[in-house]
């Protein structure tokens, strides 16, 4: 298993997706930084909570659903598109182990984006007046916890993107899913069904944008289903699927 995980890790070397990951972390942080810069004055200290959470909202609402779906689609479908799937599946490892290694490596991929954007917020915050005085360990810990929660919730959505990528054997449909997720989430977040839809539930659980409909039990149940159902589907489907391409 360690060898398989190492293989998955090695595949990311010099990958063009690394640039996307960088962009995905930098763009929202840069946007929030510029907005803050525009309203900055010497008489007002930086509101760290607001600074961190504006970025968190952009990540949760726009960047994560689209970018992470693309990254996960790429992770799972690249073997078909680069025609390396024959080689992957004719090694001494079962298909389930191959899938498991991919799900394991998906975590540091998503983590890298979230960690980078968090650190960028932390670093750029010190550019503003009074930032050193207003940042407390309590704020830092609380905000880091929110970013970590968003990361976990986004990770729970990876089996959906993986299933789409494996079914179509291409990361393009996964990318389409990401765009669809953003549009649909923005629509549903205004309704009372916000916690029943995985992407909007993620948004509300992480950012509490709709406090009136923020039932944690419904939200986490939705996320659990969103994680388990496609995962089980993939396990059955991929174990038995014929591999013709590659």
């Amino acid at each position: 298993m360690v060898d398989l995980i190492a293989c998955e890790w090695m595949k990311w070397k010099r990958s063009r997706m690394l640039w996307l990951m960088l962009l995905g972390a930098v763009l929202p942080a840069l946007l929030v930084f510029l907005v803050e810069l525009n309203g900055a004055s010497d008489s007002k200290s930086l509101d760290w909570v607001n600074y961190f959470e504006t970025n968190l909202q952009i990540m949760a609402m726009l960047m994560c659903p689209a970018l992470f779906s693309l990254l996960i689609g790429y992770l799972f479908a690249r073997e078909f598109q680069e025609r390396t799937v024959n080689n992957m599946l004719t090694g001494p490892h079962s298909r389930l182990r191959v899938l498991t290694a991919k799900f394991i490596i998906a975590f540091p991929v998503l983590l890298a984006v979230m960690l980078l954007t968090f650190l960028l917020m932390l670093g750029t915050g010190f550019f503003f007046h009074g930032a050193g005085d207003t940042l407390t360990m309590s704020i830092l810990g609380k905000e880091a916890g929110k970013y970590a929660l968003l990361l976990m919730l986004q990770y729970a959505l990876t089996p959906i993107s993986a299933a789409v990528a494996l079914l179509w054997r291409s990361y393009i449909p996964a990318m389409g899913l990401g765009i669809f997720a953003v549009i649909s989430e923005l629509t549903i977040m205004q309704s009372k069904y916000i916690m029943y839809y995985p992407w909007s539930a993620t948004l509300n659980l992480a950012t509490n944008m709709s406090p009136g409909h923020n039932s944690a039990s419904i939200g986490y149940s939705t996320m659990a289903l969103a994680f388990v159902v496609p995962l089980v589907f993939i396990a059955f489907y991929f174990r038995r699927a014929d591999v013709h391409s590659g």
């Binding site: 090695m10 010099r14 025609r83 390396t84 992957m88």
Partner: peptide, 29 residues
């Protein structure tokens, strides 16, 4: 399958990796 080597239909490689890196990946696999 450890006793078998194969090239089926088309030899696909990770385009971002060099020849030796592709082989190293297979070595780990």
């Amino acid at each position: 399958l450890r006793k078998v080597g194969s090239v089926i239909e088309y030899p696909g490689f990770y385009p971002n990796l060099t020849a030796i890196e592709n082989l190293n990946l297979h070595r780990r696999l």
